[in-house]
Design a protein around this nucleic acid. Sequence first.
DNA 1: GCCGTTTTCGGCCCGACTGTTTTCAGTCG
Length: 592
Amino acid sequence: MKIVTNVELAQLLRKVAAAYQILDENRFKIIAYERVADSIEHLTSEAKDLWDDGKLNEIPGIGEGISHYLDELFRSGTVKHFDDLFKRVPEAVFPLLLVPGLGPKKAYRLVKEFGFRGSKTVISDLEKAAKAGKIAPIEGFGEKSEEGILSSIALYKKGAVKENRMELPIADSIAKAVITYLNNLREVERIDVLGSLRRMVSTIGDIDLAVATKYSDRVVAHFVKYPHEKIIDEGPQGATLLLHNGRQVDLRVQDPATYGAMLQYFTGSKNHNIALRELALSRGLSLNEYGIKKVSKSKVKSQKSIKCDTEEAFYNTIGLPWIPPELREDKGEIEAALHGRLPKPIEPGDIKGDLHIHTNYDLETSHDLGADPLAVHLDRAEKLRYEYIGISDHNPSVTKHTVSQIVGIMKRRKEYYDRQAHGKPVHVFVLCEVDIQPDGTLALPTEAFAYVDAAVVSIHSSFTLAKPVTTKRVIAALTAHPKVRIFGHPTGRLLTKREGVELDWKEVFAVCKKRDIALEINALPQRLDLPDTIVYDARKEGIRFCINTDSHAVSHMDMMRYGVSVARRGWCEKRDVVNTMVYNEFKHWLIR
DNA sequence: GCCGTTTTCGGCCCGACTGTTTTCAGTCG
């Protein structure tokens, strides 16, 4: 297999780690490979591109050894050392690692015991063995292991296991339902959503909740009575349920006196927590979910731990200010906190307008119209306390009209919106979302630009062109007309469905910077486009953003907060986002 | 195998739960 993408690369490195684990290699070597796999997964750019630029060593966790192997990989397509390693482990082991509860050691024992061959059939072979009662007698296994393997395989087959992530609103609504249920219990003092949902990651794996209570047993007992498919875990500190919808909910309970440590621990991210614990250790402190202990030379000095009832207290005890959850990804936030350089992330209330709204006005586009008229959107905008909105209908179809027909449509539309908007408390900008055609030209004739205040340009077709071609295409579009002010949903990704286009972001950033074009942060939960990692990179280059909902119905206008959370994860402050400007300033920025 | 405001050697985040065990290894988050 030719390794190209970060996902494949991370898989390869995890496979190396698993093989080393089976061969009882030094466990820190194993951790080293897992760490690199992890940081490659979290990379904003392709590792291959970094290698091209000779910057492989900038990836955290990559040193001389792994760098040398990856060099061989990118050069020749294979790594002899890895191939030799894999020869020492039966191929059938690796598919078993996808079954929950099976790690390298157990998977290896099973493969060796039964002599499984062929990675394609191994899971069904194992299922047969379990059903025949052949696993329980193996040393180290037992009745329960056999049952566990069977139910894990069933889950695996249902697809409920790996990479089955959900969009934010779905996670929100599941969390809300469970919280409502738990709040019926008097013993619950406080409930919080933690984990990736609190950090507002673009897709959510499972729901993490924490409860502050003095009666943990009662809360856990109540929780496991919530309608479920299966209890995955249960203990005095919490429990994990698999719901009927295939989603997992993880609950932790904790005494209010130490709740701050729990909030911090269970919010993650894992990498943030690891980095935080390493920092704490260097200062003679050991962190866990119950509090902070003083240590010396990896020995606990006193058994008494410092209790923190709030997260602020927890961070302060380590000597740091509180870090907003969206920043906790080990992307330099701890360093920034140490030096008092944490950003003050943008808040939903900073948004003064939404510039990407589709109404039901029919301008004979080949794309979707919105469902609601301008007036309805204006009412909503007023309730949201916006000063202005922008109507960004799709351009009229270019194949079904002549240039003069399009100019006519755009002129009539402009006049219509101007009449409708007259005298309203919320200002209306008449924009247009213009297709970036495969050759980089815009799907709106130059003459028609006279009837728009500005244009949002977006890709809606040919998503899979080669990177240099797409880059050229986008740059051509961004520079095609001075009224191009916003680059709409720049990657074109649809979460869990479609990968975004490949772009040379450095080049795109440079053009945006020069022409002061804003990159859209599309707040639609299926998009969340730009991805937060690219927002982070772009912001460092001084690029500004416009957070829009891309509403096709008035209810979509309430999704703005998801876009704001992407900006927060990208370390954006108010000043990094153009639609936080007051009307006059914004108008001055927008209209060229 | 990585890495350095104590270090180029000697460390490497922390704990819960499970199952099969009489003290622990494996897996997970």
